[in-house]
Design a protein around this nucleic acid. Structure first.
Ligand SMILES: [Mn+2]
Ligand SMILES: [Mn+2]
Ligand SMILES: [Zn+2]
Ligand SMILES: [Zn+2]
Lengths: 141, 141
DNA sequence: CTGCTCGTGAGAATGATTGTCATGACGCTC
DNA sequence: GAGCGTCATGACAATCATTCTCACGAGCAG
């Protein structure tokens, strides 16, 4: 407990590497099961529980982003920006754009402080239709 | 099918009234099961499935607010403001403050448009510690 | 190399939510 | 107020994502 305490360290396993590799080839949010399916299709042999565990560990260490879908399912994505940021997600195809919004951050914090809240945190996701899936089509109104 | 078409109408049932009454006495977000427990404790006899169904119906018609917790559980609350608004929730006690933020709304929409997204929507919740649960050294109770 | 641990995998278990379906309650009509 | 078509309800089963269990094998420090 005193010397060589490697608590917090993670071992390098073939499975984790494979999961990260798979994620690096995806550009939208995917569920643990979808990722597992993908890996199986690619010939990787990794247990489903292992996928779940690694996704959790990786998201906890901010190497992955998590998005809780409307039905409560957790979706994961490897983001380019490693810092705090938000997402603009297409409801139709899942296409995702990362964005920073310092003004929003400050405004939210300010509102919280006005109400006496401290240690502020937040969840913010924006959904819409990307240019490829713009609605209406013929409805030239 | 032609006359007296009451599609979209809801019947007035003792169960729904009881659920709304129970919600009106709560001021923080509660899960379907918690609400069901509360009702049972109050001597109400309502099936769990009925509680789930009514909470869904009521939230779909904007008579209730839903908040998907980090673990995916759906939490419900009867809000004072019936229009679009957001929440400031205490992580410790669940105390909730509703707030409007037109500037944030516009900023988010603008960002989405800049990236070619339309039909924009969003989820935004702010968490923190309320004044009664402020963290820190001064734990002078 | 050797051993101590931690990560893994297969399957069982959990737990919130939803589906099933017979029965009862609502709100109209007359 | 009685009759009726429908929808809501409730008990319970079923679903399904996620977590747990635990024997086993693979990292890695010494
Ligand atoms: Mn933010
Ligand atoms: Mn908003
Ligand atoms: Zn799209
Ligand atoms: Zn509080």
């Amino acid at each position: 407990m005193t010397v060589g305490d490697n608590s917090g360290m993670q071992r390098n396993t073939r499975q984790r590497a494979a999961i990260l590799e798979t994620l690096s080839r995806q550009d939208d949010f995917r569920s643990a099961q979808q990722i597992h399916e993908q890996m199986k299709a690619d010939g990787e042999t990794v247990g489903l529980a292992t996928v779940y565990r690694n996704l959790q560990v990786l998201s906890r260490s901010d190497r992955l982003d998590v998005l809780v879908a409307g039905d409560g399912e957790a979706l994961y994505r490897q983001c380019e920006d490693t810092g705090h940021h938000h997402h603009l997600v297409c409801r139709e195809c899942g296409r995702t754009v990362e964005f920073l919004a310092p003004k929003l951050e400050n405004a939210m914090t300010a509102i919280a402080h006005e109400h006496g809240f401290t240690d502020v945190d937040h969840t913010l996701e924006v959904f819409g239709l990307c240019s490829d899936h713009a609605e209406g089509g013929v409805e030239t109104r």
